[in-house]
Design a protein around this nucleic acid. Structure first.
Lengths: 216, 216
DNA sequence: GCAAATTAATGATTTATTCAAG
DNA sequence: CTTGAATAAATCATTAATTTGC
């Protein structure tokens, strides 16, 4: 293990312009742009832009010079339109789970036709949808203690073949009475029919994009 | 390999335009002063740029000399230099825990003087450092049931809770038969996951940045 | 001493939880 | 109650340390 020893670095020595505080900060252009940067083999959220934070109810202080973006319709959280949701669900059903940066970008571009939207919304949507789907499964599985046992085909949870050794789940007890189901849940019939997600033999591996390389 | 076919929705009909969402609009005003919650404006990773793909560097084993930073280029993972680590730790000690986008950007700019680095590295560093600090605390707390606090010297695992983890790791058989004991102990009082802030002593009066309000 | 074999750290991602707007 | 947003925990993967046989 290394022992860090630092040599009195003089932080912020130059660049007075970065005057910390809530003063003014220079634009700081995003670094990408230098050389060939369009490879994009991976990676994701580059979409959560600074700001968009909830605005302070008592006075939304924006510092001077802030050209503040387009009105954002309220500035709160994204409120997806039906079209947007429809498309997202379709993508989800088709197997997409964790879109990478470019995919998110593309999706965002498309969805923006139907309403205001940012990349991070897309990113979060997939995160949440995936998580809640899983959650629902678990709960469902628990509720009806079915022992299907048959379908352990393990759906492609991720659009990509899940080569997980399965048996990863071993989360601890949570609020729901679940817990002891932890072990079982993933094998609880690779997604029983309750949810409307997968259904229909769409081999889900249809993938609209080359999904994330994802070494795992 | 599978051939991707896609759904009927004619998504992606046009060209991507590739402009990456990461646009930084408003400067963002720290919410601080708010009441109980509202994470102010934290938002983060807008730094993981698409690219930086892992590059297989056959060979290129760098000699572990006194210093090896700088070139780095290889393309694998970030390998912080001592200076970088020093600065990061200093910031951490001064109270910074979850820097927002701008802060990350600034830090990155500064740290790049000492070696190649990207914003996401900074982001991850804080995430990991914070998490591991907590983890260590927990472990420590568990090990010695006392709460004398202070000292936080080291980790003498007296076998109290150190052995259990065998079962926790059902990784694929790695070569190592490790048994790392990183685990829970949720019962370790005084350390709920929603704990406020974990300040180890230093009463950061220093604040290089407007510290994150950190509501939670 | 040295390099392969192990082990400990820790960078990078994904998943689970939490919070609160609507 | 649903779900967008954000954070924390878990976990995967690679690299530096360290140990070990020569």
């Amino acid at each position: 293990m290394k022992v860090h020893q630092f040599a009195r670095v003089d932080l912020w020595e130059h660049e007075p312009s970065l005057s910390l505080g809530c003063k003014r900060l220079r634009p700081l252009a995003p670094k990408l742009g230098g050389n060939g940067h369009s490879i994009a083999t991976l990676d994701l959220k580059c979409f959560i832009k600074p700001e968009s934070g909830p605005r302070n109810t008592s006075g939304d202080r924006k510092e001077a010079g802030a050209q503040q973006a387009e009105v954002q319709s309220g500035g709160t959280r994204w409120n997806p339109t039906q079209e947007q949701i429809g498309i997202l669900e379709m993508l989800y059903r088709s197997g997409m789970r964790t879109p990478n940066a470019q995919q998110i970008e593309q999706i965002t571009v498309q969805l923006s036709k139907y309403g205001k939207i940012e990349g991070k919304n897309v990113f979060y949507w997939f995160q949440n949808h995936k998580a809640r789907e899983r959650q629902k499964q678990k709960r469902s599985c628990l509720t009806r203690t079915l022992s299907v046992g048959v379908l352990s085909k393990e759906t492609h949870e991720d659009g990509v073949a899940v080569k997980e050794e399965e048996s990863y789940y071993k989360r601890k007890c949570r609020s729901w009475s679940v817990q002891r189901f932890e072990e079982e849940s993933r094998s609880c019939g690779g997604f029983s029919s309750t949810a409307e997600e997968y259904h229909e033999g769409s081999d889900k591996t249809l993938e609209l994009f080359p999904l994330h390389p994802e070494g795992r």
